[in-house]
């Protein structure tokens, strides 16, 4: 059913496990060799340009000649193209307002909730549903895609597209946003493992919310515990192997298969 082929480019940061993974904190000097290294993500040059310092609490990673810091804590910043789970908190005849776990509410306009029909009706036979906010009600959970977002304006959403739309069943849980790439794993390895072992449908979105639905409550509980464990141990090595072991053990303990 729901496939989770999220853009893998977004998650390159967590892919390679062979690089250095030192824990750094804000203000820590990463290197004083500014000739061979350049400041990458989460870093900055100091005023004299002789040191590269970290801006976040995170893990140091060197890619080619860039020094990056992969954050362990942080907040979600919407970007165009992200898939997010939204909760409708308010609506009026013109638009819905949605909570997407960012600093602003997002806007969903009714024209972005209907597929455009190929036959042109020339206005006269226009369906009234296209322009009014009757499709969803307050409290609905939607899987949406961001079509525009910047620093100043409210992000705009759409529900037209593959796997997008309202979810009336399942459970939504939220975890720390920077740990989402770890739940997906290297080219989706972790999420495949979770799906196969717990027989649940999962949809992971970039704003830190995860939709899941399993055969029964026992499987869903097991999956939630597993995701919480991934969140807690996101900065350790060899997590995928440890998770499969953990789920197998828990299955025996809880008596489910």
């Amino acid at each position: 059913m729901e496939n989770d082929e999220l853009d893998s480019e977004e998650f390159e940061d967590f892919e390679d496990e062979e690089f250095t993974r030192d824990l750094v904190v804000p203000g820590e000097i990463l290197t004083e060799d500014t000739e061979n290294f350049l400041p990458g993500r989460g870093t900055i040059l100091n005023e004299k340009k002789n040191k590269i310092i970290s801006l976040n609490i995170g893990l140091k990673k060197i890619t080619k000649n860039y020094i990056n810091v992969i954050p362990l804590r942080g907040f979600y910043t919407p970007r165009p193209g992200d898939k997010v789970i939204a909760l409708i908190v308010d609506k009026n005849p013109v638009k819905y307002r949605c909570d997407i776990n960012a600093k602003d509410f997002a806007i969903l306009k009714p024209k972005n909730t209907f597929k455009r029909s190929k036959i042109r009706t020339r206005g006269a036979e226009k369906d009234i549903g296209d322009t009014s906010t009757e499709k969803y009600s307050i409290g609905d959970i939607l899987i949406t895609k961001i079509i525009s977002a910047d620093r100043l304006n409210m992000p705009e959403l759409t529900t037209v597209g593959k796997y997008l739309g309202k979810r009336s069943n399942g459970i939504v849980i939220s975890i720390d946003t920077p740990k989402i790439p770890r739940v997906i794993g290297r080219s989706g390895s972790m999420i495949k493992l979770l799906k196969n072992l717990t027989k649940c449908h999962i949809f992971v979105t970039q704003n830190g919310r995860i939709w899941l639905k399993g055969e029964d409550l026992a499987h869903e509980k097991l999956l939630i515990d597993a995701i919480k464990k991934i969140e807690k141990e996101a900065h350790t090595v060899g997590l995928t192997d440890r998770m499969s072991e953990y789920i197998e053990n828990e299955k025996k303990k809880r008596g489910i298969n």
Partner: peptide, 11 residues
């Protein structure tokens, strides 16, 4: 502030 993950130049 550092624990919240807000970018900071230093402590």
């Amino acid at each position: 502030l550092a624990d919240a993950g807000i970018p900071m130049k230093s402590l």
